[in-house]
Design a binder for these strands. Structure first.
Ligand code: SF4
Ligand code: SF4
Lengths: 141, 141
DNA sequence: CAAATATAGGACTAAAAAGTCTTTTATGCA
DNA sequence: TGCATAAAAGACTTTTTAGTCCTATATTTG
């Protein structure tokens, strides 16, 4: 469904978010140890998320990755969109670029339902909710 | 969502199914011309579908690919399962193999909804319905 | 300012998915 | 029986995704 980049990104963000609750920046090593993601690869993903203004970073001692936005204001959708793009939310299930919504095949509306359900899940849940649920579940914290 | 293999496979099957209505076997060239899929690649996919008993084939003159089953008895799900496997219908959206349904995070049930919606679309529609809808739509036949 | 620390950037390698090409095997028909 | 036809099989190449590693740049602190 989502790419590895996206999965790793989301997991890394939960670690950053959790640390942020104690106003702490986190380094890539700590992030990857907890999130269980490959270090260099995750670093690239996070660099990307900095560029796309999902997170911020600071170099040097006591530096690391952190959120300057409120976690409630960043949805899963925002992250997936930033990393994987909109395709998963818009692309036809049968991969047929030729046909359009004006003259849809019977599946069009049915796939639309699936896609919009996915969109709902992703956009109705913020990173804060991901933290409360996913993070605590997975890391037992 | 689905792999190229899966998309091409489904498209090719519509061509084979349509020809089957006039009791005709179809060769790979005709299939790929209509379905607009790469020939050698599609051939591999169809070989696979023969092995998995979705379709049958016959070599030699007047040979080609054909269905021996009734199109009503083959669902989109059957095809996706044969080509892409069950992952898309079962895998956690966050790619976390560690956690399970017994102690689910808040997203688990939400993703479950998406997955089961996808399953419903795929299993409630047979190749026959794909033909009636998709094929006629796309090829204007 | 210098040394230590941490992210950013760039150039890689590895693995998986997508796609091609050439040879072999089975079938029908003259 | 032999030739034409069409799928099957196998060995490739290409592209994309995943992942690594090394160097440069920014920041803190003594
Ligand atoms: S009409 Fe059918 S094939 Fe075309 S984009 Fe919609 S779902 Fe896909
Ligand atoms: S509990 Fe959450 S993270 Fe775990 S498998 Fe279910 S949806 Fe995925």
């Amino acid at each position: 469904m989502f790419s590895k980049r996206c999965e790793y990104g989301l997991r890394a963000l939960t670690v950053i978010g959790e640390a942020g609750k104690e106003d702490r920046k986190v380094g890539i090593k700590e992030i990857c140890n907890l999130a269980k993601t490959p270090e260099s690869f995750t670093a690239k993903i996070l660099q990307d998320l900095v560029r796309r203004n999902i997170i911020d970073s600071l170099k040097g001692p006591n530096g690391g990755f952190y959120f300057s936005k409120n976690l409630d204001d960043i949805s899963i959708y925002d992250v997936v969109l930033a990393i994987d793009g909109e395709e998963i939310f818009t692309k036809c299930g049968l991969g047929l670029s030729e046909c359009n919504a004006k003259k849809p095949c019977p599946f069009h509306n049915q796939f639309e339902t699936v896609r919009s359900e996915l969109f709902k899940v992703c956009s109705n849940n913020s990173l804060n909710e991901l933290l409360e649920g996913f993070y605590k579940q997975v890391y037992n914290r």
